[in-house]
Design a binder for these strands. Structure first.
Lengths: 258, 258
DNA sequence: CCATCTTTGTGCACGCGTTCACAAAGGCAT
DNA sequence: ATGCCTTTGTGAACGCGTGCACAAAGATGG
């Protein structure tokens, strides 16, 4: 029916939409919290609130996994934790390597969230010989020369890049050549990888810039509105308006493309 | 026509789609690199490649900002850098506070990417009295008791939360009450904020879980395919298949919902 | 055993984002 | 000046994701 002529089943993984996959960890976290409080069952409404999403969306998401709920009752917390964990592949062990042990790399190595869910830091790798052998988060730092050997010896398939931007692509290439097929990139660089390799990107600078855009828009809105609607969060707006020393020159021309 | 009854124009900011806004920083970064190499103009095709996107998408994105290109030539690099910077609000100064100076908070404080684009760390804030006054990234750590005073004295409207999950909502509430209207949240918590406050979330654990999902699927695909297509990235697959000690029990039942 | 009430699972419609494909626009050489 | 060649800007179609609204399913009480 809806399947029609399916050119690229690669995007849709096993029929689970990407957007749903991205929310499963959120549900899992909420469910884990409920599990720790020994809550036996939960309704889609409650769980959706806890996860910060719409309940219809949550139900539709779960429907892709199967019919794991009981009508009139809700979902069994423990069972759902198991199902989602299995779907996400968290029932197995995922060794990861962190490449680039600067401030950020060290912080991630120390981060507890790693081990909590099947992920295990197999090695810390840095290019600086001065770092080699040093202890970070109770683990010795390896030299990047041993990258291939470490990856293959530990069966690592997930790599985390926390190098400076300039080194990221080079490190990425070596990781991929060594067999890594999933990369979490913290460097401010667009990585190019062969098909079949997944890259996810975490970029502080980009996130801040997106926030700045909306912040600017909010300020402009309030300025333009003047005494219009209820002034939300008035303190911040007042201050921002007062601080703008470049005057109302920057953004007034509403370049509405006709 | 398609607009119909438009309840919430809040989502679309000044006509620029959210997806486009999220890509502007990417373009800006690529353009800045070109600018440093003194490249005068760039075509949509080149720039798109550098930014890792489709050229048609890039042109459509730019079309929301106005007609800044010259047909037959391309875009003027310097001019475009200026226009995007202005659109993103980067021509003004954005003081930010970082709350929670643990490993991650300290790493972010040291991160150079902050200052590079109009963002300035105005204060580091922590709840631990033992941290107060300590120097991190050449800056004294303030106590959380002074949070409101710091925010108002510096006109801060962007806050970064790097506390443990348990403290995040509480810190968030205080930030919002003090006038913060944009929050970048690194804590593994769903923050609830009043309308008009933007929250963006960076979650290492979620990113890893998403990668694990795809990784698992890739492994399953290769196992199922057997000797089918060209075995991409064969080393990793072989190893993964060999390492799976739980046998083919976990994921074979294709629960294809009829 | 039946009625009622709760909650799931999903068909459907809508809107956003992406991509294609092409006409309009402008530079450049002759 | 004119024609060609490159590249932009965008109309239109398509597909994905979201949310509504409701019927089906099952629990619960009498």
């Amino acid at each position: 029916m809806a399947t029609g002529r399916n050119h690229r089943p690669a995007t849709r993984s096993r029929g689970i939409p990407e957007a749903t996959v991205a929310r499963l960890p959120l549900y899992l976290r909420a469910l884990t919290a409920l599990s720790e409080r020994s809550v036996p069952t939960v309704s889609s409404e409650e769980l959706a609130t806890a996860a910060g999403v719409n309940s219809a969306k949550l139900r539709k998401d779960f429907s892709y996994l199967g019919s794991y709920g009981t009508r009139g009752v809700g979902y069994d917390v423990e069972y759902l934790v198991y199902q989602i964990s299995r779907e996400l592949g968290l029932t197995q062990d995922w060794p990861v390597v962190i490449v680039g042990i600067g401030n950020l790399g060290a912080a991630l190595a120390n981060y507890g969230g790693f081990a909590s869910r099947g992920f295990r830091v197999a090695a810390l790798i840095d290019a600086d010989p001065a770092m080699t052998g040093r202890q970070v988060a109770g683990m010795g730092v390896s030299h990047v020369d041993d990258l291939e050997q470490i990856i293959q010896a530990n069966g690592v398939s997930i790599g985390v890049i926390t190098t400076p931007g300039g080194a990221a692509q080079q490190v990425c290439d070596r990781l991929v050549a060594a067999g890594i097929t999933s990369i979490l990139n913290f460097a401010p660089t667009v990585l190019s990888v062969p098909e079949g390799v997944d890259v996810r990107k975490v970029d502080l600078s980009i996130e801040l810039q997106i926030l700045a855009f909306h912040e600017q828009r909010k300020a402009a809105d309030e300025l333009a509105a003047g005494r219009n609607g209820t002034p939300r969060v008035p303190a911040a707006v007042e201050r921002r308006a007062g601080r703008a020393e470049d005057g109302p020159e920057g953004d007034i021309p509403a370049v509405m493309p006709a």
